[in-house]
């Protein structure tokens, strides 16, 4: 399966993502410069973490205007799988590919720590190898992960099972105390209504191999791989 990892000026998790995909999961990976206008033939796209454009104006605000984002928009429209991690999530919000916006963390600190996250919806191309309600451990590293949206959109997210990950306690209960950044409804990750775009603040690529003593993030990438593979298997052979 062919992956593209977009490299914006200031991305710093692009190579981590490429490493997990290529070296751990034996995938075909292209690093794609933000100034390019075409993605080429891909099965999935990753917008990695980092500080694109130094977070100038707002996180992700300048990156969403990069030439490659036209191709990402088109890829999304045709059903391609798009994963945004941390700054990648912020870019997807600014680009309007996911609803809502990010505010600074309630405590104003840059938070770098492992958190517990509950898989709220395991029936997505990104989470099929998890179980609904499963509690996983993922690292976060951000200053602006305080998700916000209006009440109407929040209700729609809930009704359409678009809230994929929530910050929780070790036992899976979703409490204010388990919320590291003040995020609305403890939201750590959401998908779009069509279901092919996921954004999350935690970093699955930083916990995807045994060497790092945590492989909880690997199942996200494996889910995407199997989703694409099974979709390709279902396609009728070209005549």
């Amino acid at each position: 399966m062919k992956w593209g990892v977009i490299v914006f000026p200031g991305s710093n998790c692009d190579r981590d993502c490429a490493h997990v995909l290529a070296d751990v999961l034996d995938q075909d990976v292209n690093l794609i410069w933000h100034g390019d206008s075409s993605l080429g033939e891909l099965d999935a796209v990753v917008l990695p973490g980092g500080f694109s454009y130094g977070d100038y104006l707002r996180t992700g605000a300048i990156a969403q205007l990069s030439p490659i984002m036209h191709a990402v928009q088109e890829f999304t429209r045709t059903g391609g799988l798009v994963l945004g991690i941390c700054n990648g999530f912020q870019i997807l919000l600014e680009a309007g590919l996911l609803p809502g916006a990010m505010l600074p963390n309630v405590g104003l600190s840059f938070i770098c720590e492992d958190v517990r996250v509950k898989v709220e919806n395991a029936d997505t191309p990104f989470t099929r190898h998890y179980e609904s309600g499963q509690v996983i451990r993922l690292p976060i590293a951000h200053a602006e992960g305080n998700y916000h949206t209006d009440p109407v959109t929040q209700a729609a997210l809930q009704a359409n099972a678009q809230i994929v990950f929530r910050y929780c306690r070790t036992d899976g209960t979703v409490t204010e105390q388990a919320n590291p950044n003040g995020s609305l409804d403890n939201i750590a990750g959401i998908r779009n209504a069509a279901g092919n775009v996921l954004g999350l603040m935690p970093h699955p690529e930083r916990c995807a191999e045994a060497l790092l003593d945590n492989e909880d993030g690997q199942l996200l990438f494996r889910s995407m791989i199997d989703s694409v593979m099974s979709r390709q298997a279902e396609k009728p052979a070209a005549s």
Partner: peptide, 8 residues
């Protein structure tokens, strides 16, 4: 389009 994010 750029200077403000009208969501927030």
């Amino acid at each position: 389009t750029l200077l403000a994010n009208t969501v927030i």
